[in-house]
Design a protein around this nucleic acid. Structure first.
Lengths: 338, 338
DNA sequence: TCGAACCCGTACAACGTTGTAGAGTGACGG
DNA sequence: CCGTCACTCTACAACGTTGTACGGGTTCGA
């Protein structure tokens, strides 16, 4: 059986509270008492019982990260970044997968399992603005993503509209005029698809170009195969274009494959840009230009914000905050200069 | 503040133990008492305090999964599968990243943070056979991977040698005779690289072909760029070959890119096969044939085995077991039939 | 020399839960 | 009519930790 404070105390010949004081670096302990206790601790290989500590303190030292699924590279890389940020703060991360399913997401928000941790970083995909009040929860919560805005919780996200506009302008500056979009969602206003499409339209407007609905490829899911399928469908319509903006990298990579299959060359005939800056974007053929939406910054900020809320037991921080990460265009082979 | 058993008991007019009995479905509770308690529970929105329950029971209902990093697709997909399997059993998963660093791995094995969970599923990359006794730990442990065999813990893994042999034979059957290997490790005997290379050699032997060291590409890391670099180096030697066996999918995808850059065609000039059956293998151009090493089965078995050990407090199960998953060749465009 | 101030350590209670022991009630058989 | 048994519920202790309150000792200045 694992050693407890009592065991250590008995061996060191002190009270359990003194042992506790040594462990928690309480200053008023005589050096030789401290040494005696330390020796006993090492001798027994004592490690504190975290359940007992949690019960006493009300804190666990863990946080939950709820996201759609780790098989999606974007979320895997996000989880990686969150775990690293948490570790730097001495916290540990528990992961829940929702599959982007609204019901499951709502479940997670009220799951008793959350009580195993001190707070939640939540990246919903199925919930929408109608569910905004479900975010009114009795524990610290930081929201990610672009499904819900102006909710009752701190929200850390990316500059979707500006970044998408910048990506589009990046193509326009390189002489491309007919830019296909892959991954649009019908009638969506917010959500990654809606916002990024808005950025695209803003860039066209600013350049005095007309928006051509024939250039928009719709697909609900954002897997690579969806990018390829959507692109093939557009190619089949015979519409003319000289560039593609994939609303995320996997779509762009799928689209790039379809373009090449059709005998067109990237980037000579068609320039391609993605969004997310996944690791694999640098290894495609040709390597994929993309938008780095500040994922590491988002993870870092989300963890820091959550820990602040956890530490702030009397609500000194105040209302929900909106925090936006910096984005950056990453130029690679798929978008050559003029 | 959150409600406790005391609050519920007061409202329902019973003792806290009766409430506890209702919650734990203890049979001898009068129906109307039960109903009264249920009502009180719902009225207060009572949820049990898991820290207290853990303290009392010694179990947390969580397990730790320690792996190199989630940014590597293989491990992201493994984590996904482990989380799903755990969830089916009502358990939750906490993830630790080691970066495949030996020191960090040894740290994780003795980290106090492990006490937050009931057991560990451990996939080391830096540790080796010399560290085998470090696996003698005072908590339930299931080992994954091929760094350590015949250790003191249950071990769930894939049939590396057989599967690699099957992949090689698959190429041989399709008329390929000079098969490059990408991803070998100098002088490695076990480890994924060592075992898969052994399978490759066994297939050659069985076919009466000589092993040609000129066909082996060495690279320590298994990222896509390493596959590309290693392949370029081999191309530069001018050695002749008609197929490539990437010791994992990312290497194979990187190698495929380098082959295509060099003006060779896949699969006409060079057939390519990988190992792991990552999601992305089906979306490359051409799509990549590969070995499905039974990842889902490994995850499922690892969780089941760990939970057995956790439930087995008096050591009834006995010695460490070795469990091997079934593999399967996945045929795609990169390896056309004869 | 004495009180104040500080240092070091202890005892006890409490966090919220569940196991154990046992008390009270009613039914039933002898 | 009494003992037994099954049922329902309660009181209490315990899991291992830390906060609070306090007691005895030393040191220092007046």
């Amino acid at each position: 059986m694992a050693a407890t404070l009592h065991d250590v105390a008995r061996i060191a010949g002190v009270s359990i509270k003194t042992v506790s004081n040594v462990i928690n670096d309480y200053p008023h302990v005589k050096p030789d008492t401290r040494a005696r206790v330390q020796t006993a601790i090492e001798e027994l290989g004592y490690q504190p019982n975290l359940s007992a500590r949690s019960l006493r303190s009300g804190l666990t030292g863990a946080i939950t990260l709820a996201l759609p699924e780790l098989s999606l590279s974007y979320f895997a890389e996000l989880a990686d970044a969150v775990i690293r940020a948490a570790e730097r703060a001495g916290k540990v991360v528990l992961i829940e997968q929702t599959n982007g399913d609204r019901t499951r997401e709502l479940e997670v928000l009220t799951s008793p399992r959350l009580k195993m941790t001190d707070g939640l970083i939540f990246s919903p995909l199925g919930m929408g603005m109608d569910d905004v009040d479900r975010l009114e929860v009795p524990y610290p919560l930081v929201l990610l993503g672009e499904r819900i805005f102006d909710g009752p919780a701190d929200h850390v996200t990316m500059r979707n509209v500006e970044a998408a506009r910048a990506a589009t302008e990046f193509l326009l500056e390189r002489g491309r005029k007919r830019i296909v979009v892959i991954g649009a969602h019908e009638d969506e206003v917010i959500g990654s698809a809606g916002l990024r499409l808005r950025g695209y339209r803003e860039a066209l407007d600013a350049a005095g170009l007309d928006f051509d609905p024939a250039l928009i490829g719709y697909t609900t899911l954002w897997h690579r195969s969806n990018g390829a399928t959507s692109m093939r469908a557009l190619l089949a319509t015979g519409v003319e274009f000289d560039a593609v903006f994939g609303l995320n990298d996997t779509l762009a990579l799928g689209a790039m494959r379809a373009i090449q299959e059709a005998g067109l060359r990237v980037p000579d005939d068609v320039a391609v840009i993605g969004f997310d800056d996944l690791d694999e974007a640098q290894y495609s053929l040709p390597s994929l230009s993309t938008v780095n939406p500040g994922r590491d910054e988002i993870a870092e900020t989300a963890v820091a914000t959550l820990l602040q809320r956890i530490g702030d037991r009397d609500g000194a921080i105040g209302d929900a905050r909106q925090i936006l990460a910096r984005y950056e265009i990453v130029e690679r082979e798929s978008t050559p200069p003029l």
